[in-house]
Nucleic acid binder design. Structure first.
Lengths: 236, 236
DNA sequence: TAGATTGTTAATCGATTAACAATC
DNA sequence: TAGATTGTTAATCGATTAACAATC
């Protein structure tokens, strides 16, 4: 079974040493700090498989079976889960629905996440209408674009506003996550705005490393990387 | 440190048609097989930084500076490059243009890659019109969709054809890479078709693990994973 | 009880980093 | 020559896997 890189959610890159000098960073013993990005990705994968098993009315699954379906080892499955608790029963395996519920809780999918979209180009459009996000509880509540011709347009029932309107609008009606789907030149400006507004999570599609304070969580998705990695393999 | 690998090396031996006996020579010594996916991604990152430096007329860059711009260590930069050759000059660093050219060659960006798009929904639309791909040399030459209402539509000068037409069309006019942007239910069918046609590279956006022969290179991009990883961090 | 499978510890594997001789 | 920086080796760090006692 081979493994593949699912996606390119890279580590949040660099951060600026914030504010005053000797401010010691919190001990960071929070569980999330200790869990590797690899484990989180695999949890996403387990989650999807469990959804599928549940829809097939499968009651129980062993780490070996789950591993097979995800393309990892059974030890890996058990290890990943063990960071968060004991979800299985020796001799029997895991209850599909219970484990799914547990992972939903771990990943924070048991609530709604409000998101603002920056950039209403074709990528922004695809993200906005991507059904998978809403199914996971991620909702776009605002859309901003710099192009005056797009401003005023409506997607579903959400009106596209100008970048200039973003600050006031988001201050009045805040979001959890800002999604950056603008050209790379303006990506940092949008990030700065989001940070200024106290948004804690940023999903960045611009192929540029963003500078953010370390309390802000950043994930980068770079569509070119997957293709370049393919061409590397194909031309080798 | 981390693993999470490309998809299986393969095809072990390189054939060398030597004289009378055509025998397999060199078991698995192809370079691409030995390079980790992590290194390849960083090469993509170096490449983008070098493009940017070049456009600013920067002549020379040290591993330390490149590392700083990419958010990695200088040892990492030198190590990554050392797998492929000696591109620097001790005491001076790297010539920006030369290093860029070298990485372009390593990543296989010194040629054009023809691609077929499966799924002309909003994601497919975004991918098709994504400028970055063409700039890198990746061209969509075919578009296929199952929806009869879309078939016949034209994007740029390419007509959208039905899935049924794909086999014949691609046999006559082959591609290097198939891009799967269909719902997960049909992803495996498209993959099977591509494999059947001898396409060696697949970029899959469906959130489903595809079963493919070892000689086919697969990269998965799952948009949900990045968001789920953000919600994990934000809710921790 | 006998068989199955978890949760966890210890061993292994591989990626990153520190350090430095080579050399511009 | 003195200073800078590469290419590479060895040390470190951390992720994965094998193995097994616990226990259903």
């Amino acid at each position: 079974m081979e493994k593949e890189f699912e996606n390119e959610a890279q580590d949040s890159g660099k951060f600026v040493a914030s504010g005053s000098r000797d401010l010691v960073v919190e001990p960071d013993s929070s569980l999330t700090e200790k869990i590797s990005e690899f484990t989180v990705r695999r949890l996403s994968s387990y989650y999807r498989i469990l959804l599928s098993l549940e829809s097939q009315d499968v009651q129980t699954v062993s780490s070996a079976r789950l591993a097979e379906l995800c393309g990892v080892t059974s030890a890996q499955v058990r290890k990943d889960l063990s960071y968060f608790g004991n979800f299985g029963t020796r001799g029997l395996g895991y209850q599909v629905t219970d484990l799914k519920t547990a992972i939903v809780g771990i990943l924070g999918l048991d609530r709604k996440w409000m998101m603002a979209l920056f950039g209403a180009g074709s990528l922004g459009h695809a993200l906005f209408f991507h059904d998978g996000f809403r199914q996971d509880g991620f909702y776009f509540t605002h859309i901003f674009d710099i192009d005056p011709r797009r401003v005023g347009e409506k997607w579903r029932d959400i009106e596209i506003l100008s970048f200039a309107a973003a600050k006031e609008k988001l201050a009045a009606d805040p979001v959890d996550i800002g999604v950056i789907a603008v050209p790379e030149e303006s990506a940092q400006d949008i990030a700065d705005l989001l940070i200024d507004l106290g948004v804690n999570g940023i999903l960045n599609f611009a192929p540029r490393q963003l500078t953010i304070p370390k309390n802000v969580r950043l994930r980068n998705v770079n569509l070119a990387v997957a293709l370049e990695s393919l061409s590397f393999l194909l031309s080798g």
